[in-house]
Amino acid sequence: MPFDAATAHTLHTDHGPLHYYRAGTSGPAVVLLHGAMLDTAPLTWGRTLAALRDTCRLFAPDLPRHGGSRPWHGPTDQEGLEAVLATLLDHWELPRATVVGLSLGGAIAAGFAARHPERVDRLVLIAPGGMEGRRVAQGTTYLLLRAPLLLRLTTALFARAPRLLRATLAASLVDGARNPDFAEITALAEAEARATHAAGELILDDWQIHSYGWRRMRTDLRPLLPGITAPTLVVRGDKDTLVSLATVQEVAQRIPRAELVQVAEAGHLLPRDRPDEFHALLRGFLQKGHAHT
């Protein structure tokens, strides 16, 4: 599917460029935040921008050091990325918006909604990151993340070995290479792998590296969740191997008025695995908010 549903723009800041896509001219303002590693706004949200542009005003940024948002010289930890979201909302002249985040984007969205409740109308968290005290192989992962040579070799490998990247992407999608968007997703991920390597960046985000401590996760947003006041939808694909059902259940329990939905036959990249089901959920959730205004 060609990515022609949106217009591309760039905001130049003191820390570097923030590249983003816009679609739609009427309806509620919805900000879409993608995930980590080789993700970009077109990769996660290409279908969403096309599907919802007739009923929403959509804003989908490339997060710092992704897509067109490089080179970036500002902080990229949790607080730094929340500050980026605030900067973009101000640039878009949006006092309030619905914020939708996948994985890393979900962590940014949740933290921002807790610390700036006056700016978030509604919140959608898709398999959000930053919601655990410990992860499997915590100490081993911590050590691996502090092996810069290994991380650089891995980055170079993905940039120079498209077959490996395609195999990894196929394994991450429920329908594998049979996904109707597989060629598009692969092309976007390959381009991002090459751009990451060319920029001297690592395949893992700083947020991911900094989030791991030796015994416990340094980024654990769970204590903030009760402070979220926006109506919240928590979503997970039932085949997600990165974020467990127990994790999203706890997230939904800690956030007042949160609703939890699991989508059948979907993995971590839910908006691409099951786009029709996801868009129906999102439309229904937004309509609830419109009915109450």
Rank of each mutant, 00 (worst) to 15 (best):
R22N: 00
I108K: 08
S211W: 10
L225I: 05
L269W: 05
L88T: 09
A114H: 06
R254N: 10
A97T: 12
G139V: 06
T7E: 14
I108P: 09
L150D: 01
E132T: 14
W72F: 04
R215L: 15
V234R: 04
R257K: 14
D238V: 03
V31D: 08
V31A: 08
D54R: 13
L11T: 07
L52Y: 00
G101T: 12
R254Q: 09
W72H: 04
L123H: 07
A110G: 03
V248D: 11
A113C: 01
F158Y: 13
R163W: 15
L204I: 10
Y142G: 05
L33C: 04
A51T: 06
L89R: 06
E201G: 02
L43M: 14
I108F: 05
V263R: 11
T25R: 07
E259S: 01
G68E: 09
L169M: 08
R194Q: 13
Q249K: 11
G111F: 04
T76H: 04
Y20H: 14
L104I: 05
W72M: 07
A83E: 11
P42D: 08
G27S: 12
L58N: 07
M217S: 15
Y20P: 13
K239S: 12
V263D: 07
F3A: 04
G176D: 09
G133L: 13
R218N: 15
A187K: 06
V261F: 01
V235Y: 08
H12R: 15
G267F: 00
P2D: 07
R134C: 10
P162E: 14
